[in-house]
Design a protein around this nucleic acid. Structure first.
Length: 442
RNA sequence: GACCCUAUCGUCCAGUGGCCUAGGACACCGCCCUUUCACGGCGGUGACACGAGUUCGAAUCUCGUUAGGGUCGCCA
């Protein structure tokens, strides 16, 4: 399916990619993918003083991580480039002269240029907000906008409109903070003699307490989700449901389902508060239900960064398979698996007190090690049978073996399923670790 | 302050005049499952901002008030 829909995400590289910006990008992307249109990335770097390389890179990284691929833009090219505003000087000059010749501009004493408002009532139908009217007739309420700096630099309102014309945008989907700017833009389109694109102003994202979400707020930077080990598909799913709803009473939708269902008409008009806890829950759901292959792929950078000394992928995968269901964020993985790969694992104080430093615990472990050593098969079921059999034969409770042996083989009181953990460790290492522990705490 | 947008559980959504004694999810509180921790299951607390209308009937329509957000830059 293809269509003539053309939408863009036009960030300014002045900081980190914000979740609000990411959601704007996401809604544009979804609209393009739903309609079979084209999604364009345009970098609005007109403010030389504030733009940075790092910020530009953060935009690429964030979009790539979220899976929001663009059809035209940096690295991709396209027939409407360049896609950096800093490289479009000649185009702006052309439009500037056009406006100037038509008498729409005037120069200030300091050398900046302003656009003379048409001083009429501006009306437009916003795809999200509905019919909107602004009475622009009063210059005190709506002063003429500046479009060019004394140094020749261009101002957002002007270049944004020029590029949207030149790049053939059919829809402008952006944050509601631009709604009040829109009548100015509509006037620019009119002065240029070009019909304006359709507008869709999506509500802003607020903090839990209703305040505006700013860069410093928790959960604000997309980079934070990458570092903490959220699954990108979970963050995407969460963001989709923030201000838009497929009208079904469920929460988990894969991206294909969302693309099928997405439409601008069902975007909420109300600003949404960002609930990090729900995002976290959604991430847990994704981690729990994704394939082991996907989990391994997502966890690997964290494991490598922590320099976990696994021998080969088979060994690593076997371990990941049993910690996957407990993992809530990928950045926990190195800690959750570290004890599998060293005999020099640390013992957790509280667990040692409760499970090992109790009368008889070490003797019971010794008996358990002997029983394990004598066992023929080493499957979770067999291990469980051996453990419970040992307990029963001696008149002990199962948990009198379970808790001490968990501490003995892992150093911890919490972790994966005990029998699966022992299976992955193997019989020899399990027995050796139990005996080593007995010696250590004698 | 002016202009614009908005207003359902603490939060995210459902609800577009009767199906609502308002539904789902997160969080929270019980109970159950269980070798730990989770997961899961069951149940519970909890909302139509307020006031006038319109209508036989309003969470749903209109107006006002209040509240929140946005814009008013030589930032985007």
């Amino acid at each position: 399916m293809s269509s003539n829909v053309r939408v863009r995400f036009a960030p300014s590289p002045t900081g980190y990619l914000h979740v609000g910006g990411a959601r704007t990008a996401l809604f544009n992307w979804l609209f393009a993918r739903h309609t079979g249109g084209t999604f364009i990335l345009r970098i609005e770097d007109t403010d030389k003083a504030r733009n940075t390389e790092a910020a530009t890179q953060a935009i690429y990284d964030g979009l790539n991580w979220l899976g929001l691929d663009w059809d035209e833009g940096p690295f991709k090219g396209g027939n409407h480039g360049p896609y950096f505003q800093s490289e479009r000087e000649d185009i702006y000059l052309r439009y500037f002269n056009k406006l100037k010749d038509a008498g729409h501009l005037y120069e200030e004493e300091n050398g900046s240029w302003r656009f003379k408002s048409l001083r009429k009532v501006v009306k437009f139908d916003d795809l999200v907000c509905g019919h909107v009217e602004f009475d622009m007739s009063n210059a005190e309420i709506h002063p003429d906008i500046t479009i060019r700096r004394p140094d020749g630099g261009w101002i957002f309102h002007f270049v944004n409109v020029v590029d949207d014309i030149e790049m053939g945008m059919t829809h402008v989907i952006r944050g509601e903070d631009h709604l009040s700017n829109t009548p100015k833009h509509v006037e620019l389109y009119e002065a240029l003699g070009v019909p304006h694109p359709q507008f869709a102003h999506i509500p802003l994202i607020l903090n839990r307490d209703g305040s505006k979400m700013s860069k410093r707020d928790q959960g604000a930077a997309v980079g934070g989700y990458m570092e903490q080990g959220y699954a990108p598909e979970a963050v995407v799913n969460f963001l989709c449901l923030l201000g838009w709803s497929p009208k079904e009473n469920r929460e988990i939708f894969d991206i294909k389902e969302i693309i099928e269902r997405f439409d601008l008409a069902h975007i909420n008009r109300k600003a949404a508060s960002f609930d990090l806890e729900k995002c976290h829950w959604m991430n847990v759901q994704y981690l729990l239900h994704m394939s082991l292959e996907r989990f391994t792929q997502l966890a690997r950078p964290f494991i490598d960064r922590a320099a976990i000394p696994y021998k080969n992928d088979a060994e690593l995968t076997a371990v990941l398979a049993i910690v996957k269901e407990k993992t809530k964020q990928l950045d926990e993985v190195p800690d959750r698996i570290s004890f599998f790969f060293t005999e020099d694992y640390a013992y957790e104080d509280e667990g040692v007190e409760k499970a090992l430093k109790v009368p008889g615990a070490l003797d019971k472990l010794t008996a358990l090690a002997a029983a394990f050593e004598a066992s023929e098969t080493w499957t979770p079921e067999a291990i469980e049978a051996t453990l419970k059999g040992t307990a029963a034969a001696n008149g002990w409770k199962n948990k009198e073996l379970i808790h001490p042996s968990r501490i003995a083989v892992s150093g911890r009181s919490v972790g994966p399923s005990l029998y699966h953990m022992m299976e992955v460790l193997g019989k020899d290492r399990t027995v050796a670790r139990i005996r080593k522990t007995v010696e250590k705490f004698k």
